[in-house]
Computed example of a mutant assay.
Amino acid sequence: MLFFITLLLLCQLLGEAAVRLIDLPIPGPVVGMALLFVGLLIRGGEPPEALGQVAGGLLNNLALLFVPAGVGVMLHLDLVQAEWVPILGALIGSAVVTVAVTATILSLTARLTGAAPREEETKE
C-alpha cells in the first residue's frame, strides 16, 4: 500500500514538474493524474486492488481537502461580497455547461454503443 501512495505522490510531482518546465496553464495534479491514467492504460487490465484501496481512502476523506478552500473563502469574504454577481454567474454558467456537456456525451455514447433506452424512459 505504501508503494501506491508513493506512486500517486510521484505522479503528482512529475505533473508539477512538467507544468513548471513547459509552463502549462493546467494544474500539476491534473497532469499527474493523466500520467497515472496513461501508465494504467499501458499496464493494461484492471488496476491493482491496493491502488483502489489507497484511492478509496483518499476519496473517503475528500471533505478534509476542502477545508483550506473554505478557510480561503472566509479569509477573503469581503472580496466575495464585492464580487458576488460574477461569482454567481460563473457558478450558474458552469453548472449549465456541465449539464449540457454531460447530456451530450451521454447521448453520443448511447448512439455509439447502440444502447437502447430503458423501459422507464420510453413510457414518458
Rank of each mutant, 00 (worst) to 15 (best):
Val19Asn: 00
Ile92Asp: 00
Ala115Asn: 09
Asn61Gly: 07
Leu9Lys: 00
Val101Gly: 01
Val97Arg: 12
Ala103Met: 13
Pro117Ser: 05
Cys11Lys: 02
Ala116Asp: 08
Ile92Ala: 14
Val67Gln: 04
Trp84His: 11
Glu120Lys: 12
Val67Ser: 07
Leu108Met: 14
Ile87Arg: 02
Leu88Gln: 01
Ala115Gly: 08
Val85Ile: 15
Gly39Lys: 04
Leu112Arg: 11
Val30Lys: 01
Gly28Cys: 04
Leu91Val: 15
Ile105Phe: 07
Arg43Asp: 00
Val80Gln: 05
Thr102Met: 12
Leu10Phe: 12
Arg20Ile: 08
Leu108Gly: 12
Leu106Pro: 00
Ala18His: 01
Pro48Arg: 05
Ser94Val: 06
Gly45Phe: 02
Thr98His: 13
Leu13Pro: 03
Leu24Glu: 06
Leu36His: 04
Val85Asp: 04
Pro47Gln: 02
Glu121Ser: 10
Glu83Ser: 12
Leu24Asp: 03
Ala63Glu: 08
Ala55Asn: 02
Gly93Phe: 04
Leu36Pro: 03
Met1Ser: 15
Ala63Met: 12
Ile87Phe: 08
Arg43Cys: 02
Val80Cys: 09
Leu91Trp: 05
Leu59His: 03
Asp23Cys: 06
Leu91Cys: 13
Leu108Pro: 03
Ala116His: 10
Pro25Ser: 11
Val85His: 05
Glu121Lys: 02
Leu51Pro: 01
Glu46Ala: 14
Gly72Lys: 10
Met74Thr: 06
Arg111Pro: 06
Gly72Tyr: 11
Met33Ile: 09
Ala115Trp: 11
Leu51Cys: 08
Val38Asp: 03
Pro86Tyr: 06
Ala55Arg: 06
Gly45His: 03
Gly56His: 11
Asp23Trp: 04
Gly114Cys: 06
Pro48Lys: 04
Pro25Val: 00
Arg111Leu: 14
Leu2Pro: 07
Ala95Thr: 15
Leu9Met: 13
Gly32Gln: 04
Glu16Ser: 10
Pro68Asn: 08
Arg118Cys: 08
Gly72Thr: 07
Ile22Val: 15
Glu119Met: 08
Ala17Leu: 15
Ile26Leu: 14
Gly44Asp: 01
Ala103Cys: 08
His76Arg: 12
Gly72Val: 07
Val96Asp: 06
Val85Cys: 01
Pro117Tyr: 02
Met33Ala: 15
Gly52Ser: 03
Leu58Arg: 00
Leu64Asn: 12
Leu62Met: 14
Gly45Val: 07
Val96Phe: 15
Cys11Glu: 00
Ala34Ser: 10
Leu2Phe: 14
Asn61Ala: 10
Glu124Tyr: 09
Thr109Ile: 00
Leu106Ile: 02
Ile87Trp: 02
Ile92Arg: 06
Val73Asp: 05
